[in-house]
Nucleic acid binder design. Sequence first.
RNA 1: GGCCCCGUGGUCUAACGGUUAGGAUGCAGGCCUUUCAAGCCUGAGGCACGGGUUCAACUCCCGUCGGGGCUACCA
Length: 494
Amino acid sequence: MAQVRTRMAPSPTGYFHVGSARTALFSWLFARQQGGEFILRIEDTDRERSTPEHVEVILDSMRWLGLEWDGDVIYQSENLDRHTAAAHQLLASGHAYRCYATTQEIAAARESAAARGVPSWKYTGPDCVISAEEQAARAAAGAPSVVRCRVPRAAGRIEFEDLVYGPQSIDPDEIDDFVLLRADGSPLYMLSVVCDDIDEGITHILRGQDHLSNTPKQILLYQALGAPVPQFGHLALIMAPDGSKLSKRRHGEVVSITTYRDRGFLPEAMCSFLAQLGYSTGEAEESELLTLDQLAADFDLSRAGRSNAKFIYDASNPKQWTDAKAQNLNASWIRSMPIADLLPHLRPWLERAGLWSDDFIGAQAEWFEATIDLIRQRFWTLEDFVVQGAAYLSDRVEYDPAAVKKNLAKNPRTGPLLNELANRFEAVPFDHESLEAALRGYAEEEGVGAGLLINGLRTAVTGYAVGPSAFELCLALGRERVLHRLRHLPALEG
RNA sequence: GGCCCCGUGGUCUAACGGUUAGGAUGCAGGCCUUUCAAGCCUGAGGCACGGGUUCAACUCCCGUCGGGGCUACCA
């Protein structure tokens, strides 16, 4: 039994599409589950778009997601000679032929067929548009020609078993004698993919459902080339909220994997989200927070859905910039994963924001971890650690205007009360019980609700209206910072 | 237009001939009360439609409608 080998074959477009990421994920999981290999091939034959930068985006995205590939990255552009050689082999074996009809002539034939009421005209042979004599004349005159695949129309329907969609059966008369080589001799996608997949020994091809109707043509090519036909598995597509195809052009950054990385997503969250789009993790799974290893362990293509999944977001609402479920999963991962696993993801963010200290993994490690654990319970992205988190990890406080207004500025007494609260805090042991007793006692003394001071305290020392329990966070912040911030409140306009 | 694929609450999904159609997310309300984009509880919300087959259909068949893909000398 040959070893399973899957591949991901993206073309460098300048971004890595979430749908591509999902295909890559499924291919990776399948290979992993089968104990096989997963290959990455860059389909860089479109010179315009294939810049090194564009390739890097793909590699970065794949690495970030944790989808490491086996062996070196393969570049399709390096195999072009083999693709044209394959076309010549097909020409020699009679599986392909030269076509001298021009695109205009073919279009005209198609139109007139439509005018005659022929529902679907196909290019079905060398002389279906121009006569054999004319072909010979053009050949003799050295006219340009393309190489077309000779679709075996008498061989009956083309059949295959799709790993996701089940049995497929296509009438060859529904397929044109498709072009293999352009007039300039360059190979087309249909030929190139098949050649590369044969060369790389790909056994299972998982890709978007948009390739389902290309499959019969490719099967024909495998057969004509005398190669074993791999197994195909097509994955339902990810659609935009309005049901249209998700595209960078129309839908923007939300479709790009690097956006998620840059906005503080955890790759684990992205993978578990992608895995749940159009796929159901087994009933045995209690949690939706599955790691790649857990996902791979019982990966089963039969649980892949056949209907397209919508990706719901609202570009006009900052809180819904991407799918709510994705955000929820990210928050869940951030809040529940072992601190030790979270740290490697968090550290670069803190470093970039100038919030990192080596003491966090040294002298202050215990405090640091406890603090992270405390504040992450209400965080949604890694970015939260450097915005709201700054107040806990440094002397920097970012005051949220709405919070200041609500908890500090609204009641004119708040400021002075908090200033005095600093003195009360200074006079007692710095522990939860003492602080709470001091605050409540002071509130009673002044005839104000404890809530006024508690909420004011939270905003004064963290900058935000929401966060952990006020006393707990004071302990995390430490005596000096709390006292200092209570004595140096932000400007209270309005 | 032709060929192909799909159709369970807003969204992601479970149930594969007999369930009060389950879960998640989102939404609404409540609790907590010192906050909430936290936590806990409750609630509203679904089998696209019409025919069959069957004692019995979300589950099987046909049709309709709806959505999507492909239909290039793009990938």
